[in-house]
Design a protein around this nucleic acid. Structure first.
Length: 363
DNA sequence: AACTCGGGGGA
DNA sequence: TCCCCAGAGTT
């Protein structure tokens, strides 16, 4: 427990005093209705985009009862272009509930506020902390990014297990916030994430948290937060040949200078068994049909998943001995080279190939 | 736990 | 082009 002056919360507040945003439209005046409207508009929407909408909206619907009394078409017309239109419908419905059940005002109570359509845990916390200085945590994209980096939390933040952990950390830091500064702390977190601890190129060199940031310490700033797993990874298949000569040396082939595994040494590889067979007949002496099928190697790249079928053949020889060297070959093929087992470890083998050959690579 | 909503901006 | 953004509701 550190309620000391250099806690996470204290450093964030000090930074906010000097570098935070203090002139956003919904901060003057910072009424519950205006804070609510801003929080809804800013869901999945950047400040620069939402601001002109906020100004037009608040001019046309200055108070919560004004909004409640408006027609759906009128409300939607002022939202048009912002996207996520369920936000506007929920906003309008919530305003009517406030008039009907809460005296025309936004509920002061967390559970009542949370029960309104369009207001989840984070938005409820943001509204009450900013409007009333209540001690409540928020967990938006900014806070998720800051916490995953500061604490070195791996795993996509959308995963329930990761999100639960982040809520716990948000609550933990909240205890260090001085009374009366909860509104500023909420704003500080969002400003910090939006302007300093940004997704790309964060300003770590001027960061007040840099000395205790796990991502900074471990070189994981660019890797955190863990990005959302891509949906459908294309599946590709390929065949690789594990060929050995009479001396037990292994035949490697240099990859092209561009593309996957550029310029690395790998096993001779082809997209199909047919292509692999043609390559073998062209380059090698021996019988392809005797190849031993090894277990398929699965390797995932950023943009596709490769299923590699290794085939092993012993005591084969190159058809053209002249190509038995490590010089690039002009023309269609890539350089071929027999490599002694003891020398495998010194070459730049791709990880899955190294793993495949690990049985014959000296430790 | 996965899906949907959406226009805008940056890499 | 893809990913992400001051998320929440639905299935």
């Amino acid at each position: 427990m550190h309620v000391s002056a250099d806690s996470f919360a204290h450093r964030l507040l000090s930074w906010f005093d000097g570098h935070g945003r203090h002139d956003l439209p919904w901060q003057h005046p910072r009424t519950p209705y205006r804070v609510w409207l801003s929080e809804i508009m800013l869901q999945q929407t950047q400040v620069s985009t939402a601001t002109p909408y906020f100004l037009r909206f608040i001019e046309r619907f200055p108070t919560l009862p004004d909004l409640a009394a408006a027609t759906t078409d009128h409300v939607m017309a002022h939202w048009a272009g912002l996207g996520y239109y369920a936000r506007a419908r929920n906003l309008h419905a919530a305003a009517k509930v406030c008039v009907a059940e809460h005296g025309g005002e936004l509920p002061r109570d967390f559970d009542a506020l949370h029960a309104l359509p369009g207001i989840g845990r984070s938005t409820a916390g943001a509204i009450l902390s900013q409007a009333w200085n209540d001690r409540l945590p928020i967990l938006d994209g900014n806070v998720k990014r800051v916490l995953t980096r500061f604490h070195g939390i791996a795993g996509w933040p959308g995963l329930p297990a990761v999100e639960k952990q982040l809520w716990a950390l948000a609550e933990q830091h909240l205890r260090d916030v001085p009374d009366g500064r909860l509104a500023d702390y909420t704003q500080a977190q969002m400003d910090f994430g939006a302007t300093l601890c940004t997704r790309a190129k964060p300003a770590c060199v001027v960061c007040p948290l840099q000395d205790d940031c796990a991502a900074r310490r471990d070189g994981l700033v660019a890797a955190l937060p863990t990005s959302k797993p891509s949906k459908i990874l294309p599946e590709r298949e390929a065949v690789a040949l594990w060929l050995e000569n009479a001396d037990g040396e292994i035949l490697l082939q240099r990859r092209p200078e561009t593309g996957i595994w550029a310029s690395l040494w790998t096993l001779p590889q082809a997209d199909t068994d047919s292509d692999m067979r043609d390559w073998f007949a062209r380059e090698m002496k021996g019988t392809y049909d005797n190849a031993e099928e090894l277990p398929v190697v699965v390797h995932t790249f950023s943009h596709y998943r490769l299923h590699l079928q290794p085939l092993r053949l012993r005591k084969v020889a190159l058809r053209d001995a002249v190509r038995d060297n490590d010089d690039p070959v002009s023309g269609t093929g890539q350089a071929l080279r027999w490599v002694a087992r003891g020398d495998l470890a010194t070459l730049g083998l791709p990880a899955p190939i190294r793993k495949l050959l690990s049985a014959v690579i000296p430790a």
